[in-house]
Design a protein around this nucleic acid. Structure first.
Lengths: 142, 142
DNA sequence: GTATGTGCAAATCATTTGCATTCTC
DNA sequence: GAGAATGCAAATGATTTGCACATAC
């Protein structure tokens, strides 16, 4: 599998945009983060490594990474977006409680069957599956 | 099934809050809306009917409706939340394209099996299922 | 009567944008 | 050199909050 930087470089070329160090440093950092991240975290991690990229540039880069199929907007909580890289990384099935916001990842029961059928019927390439509902505790509170 | 106003009144009582005309008018309007809505739409619809409720009150009421299990945050697009009522309304399975944002509702293949199994395994009460991926057109563009 | 709720206007905060400067192609 | 990209600071826009007044219990 092509490294993500490579995928991005090809995307940039195809779009007729320019390769810049800033965007590649941000992308590299994103792929070193395990799990979800938000702009602030990303900015701080870069800063801590002595990499100076403005937030404006990060905000301008994220849509490109998304359009290149490298990341996705995972959720909008606490008033801002959280992202995660999706390239070369499977298992994005979560169960989220509408009451308390708890999130549980699951592989069992296999979401594969549904995904395969959806992929077949709608010709979608499936990336993530979010099931929303109420966890036992929140059902009890209701 | 109890009417939604009733469910809300019971919620209000249980929480030790007060019944107000404003909240009930907003709730009534929400249940007259078919499909998704956002705060602005809701505010305008109320205004058009000559019902004066401030946006601040709408913003303060929505979390209550959500906590009462009457509505859910459906998605955050165009910089703001879109909601939908979930009480007494099933079928919230959609397939959303990460590329272009297209949303397709589906019932076939049946998400029921997965939902039932999840409900059983995690004891969740399932409300909605969102599958994200890339539609045929966006896969072609990539 | 007291604690809540409302409306208004001001504040907040994530994100976006204008502009001068710097960098790719 | 021309068009893009960056950083900074200012603007934007949805949501939240302080406060004075009104209302439910």
């Amino acid at each position: 599998m092509k490294p993500e930087i490579r995928v991005f470089q090809e995307f940039i070329r195809k779009r007729g945009l320019r390769r810049t160090l800033e965007r590649e440093l941000v992308l590299q950092e994103i792929f070193e983060i395990h799990g979800h991240f938000d702009v602030d975290e990303l900015y701080l991690k870069l800063k801590q490594k002595g990499i100076k990229v403005s937030k404006a540039s990060i905000y301008r880069a994220l849509p490109l990474f998304r359009e290149a199929g490298l990341i996705r907007e995972a959720d909008f909580t606490d008033g801002h977006w959280h992202y995660e890289h999706i390239y070369g990384h499977s298992n994005h099935s979560h169960l989220k409680c509408l009451g308390c916001g708890e999130v549980v990842e699951f592989e069992e029961p296999s979401p594969q069957d549904l995904e395969k059928q959806l992929a077949k019927k709608y010709e979608y390439r499936i990336i993530a599956l979010e099931v929303q509902g109420y966890c036992p505790a929140c059902q009890r509170d209701a």
